[in-house]
Design a protein around this nucleic acid. Structure first.
Lengths: 163, 163
DNA sequence: CGCGATTGAGTTGTGCACAACTTAATCGCG
DNA sequence: CGCGATTAAGTTGTGCACAACTCAATCGCG
């Protein structure tokens, strides 16, 4: 009963298009990472570390779980990353008093001060894209919708249909 | 002399927008990866391995360098990845006769056969995005332009302007 | 209250990305 | 031809993403 699907000549086109789309996304992300890498080197931050700092600059202080919710990252990724940010002197981690399971991450003076040096980064990145603010905003919106849609997909659905 | 730049109130807006854009791109890529992960599990492939297989299904046989050029990946990434694809029985690697520096990667019978099972994947992914072919094509084009633009940027330019 | 279920953080193991490096083969210029 | 420069692949080391797991603290229901 699934023969009609796997023999569909459209699938050939999909495979070709897929080649281009998934590669484009992959390549765009890595290109972005590369440009950020250059911009962030002087701050001593990697790109994911910069994301965490952005969140902390906005919220001041958050539990690890709160950072993870905002960046969709789990403790397996955040724990070592935060340990490195702490070693760099940009954040402090302290066990919460109310809930001993929770760890609160707070900016140090150095971490707060780093924001001043980071202010120039986004403008430079935006310039490198060659897009104006409106176009960047639209791209952001599209990617946001796409990510939300994909995050809502049941993995088993996709797996089941591709067996 | 750079005070006039770092005090520009626009930089505050850029930092906020940047927060959203770079996060959106990051999140979209990881969401895509997640959906592919589910779809590719039954094929025994990771997403980057799938990209390599797509290239090989199209070209049949390529030197490592040729794969790297098409996917913008270096030997540090490809060598171990190809070793795993070889261990899985999907490709063969053989030292080129004409140029002993080069290694030719070729599909095995299993690797070629795997394409049939992969044909159903992209359709399923496309469905998960909720976008039609035209929209996907447009997204691909935008990302392609963006990546090309960012790849062309001199890293030192960006670094210099963010000191 | 007491105990099983849940939750938050961390650890371990695998794979990818990339920088910096090594090694061996080829190229090309004098 | 000979030798320094370049090139292809591979290795090493760091950091991220994620799955699967541990452990301790908290929750919540009987």
């Amino acid at each position: 009963m699934r023969v009609s699907r796997t023999l569909d000549p459209m699938d050939e086109d999909f495979l070709r298009l897929d080649n281009q789309i998934c590669f484009s996304l992959h390549a765009a992300t890595r290109a972005f990472n590369g440009v950020y890498r250059g911009a962030l080197k002087e701050l001593g931050l990697t790109y994911p570390q910069y994301l965490v700092m952005l969140v902390l600059w906005e919220h001041g202080e958050l539990p690890v779980k709160g950072i993870g919710e905002r960046l969709r990252l789990d403790s397996g990724t955040l724990s070592p990353l935060l340990k490195r940010l702490e070693a760099a002197g940009y954040v402090e981690r302290r066990r919460s008093a109310e809930d001993e399971r929770s760890v609160t991450v707070r900016l140090t003076a150095d971490g707060t001060a780093l924001r001043e040096k980071a202010l120039g980064v986004p403008r430079r990145i935006a310039a490198a894209t060659g897009l104006d603010l409106a176009e960047l905003g639209e791209l952001r919106e599209r990617l946001h919708v796409l990510a939300a849609r994909l995050d809502g997909v049941d993995p088993d659905d996709v797996a089941a249909a591709c067996g």
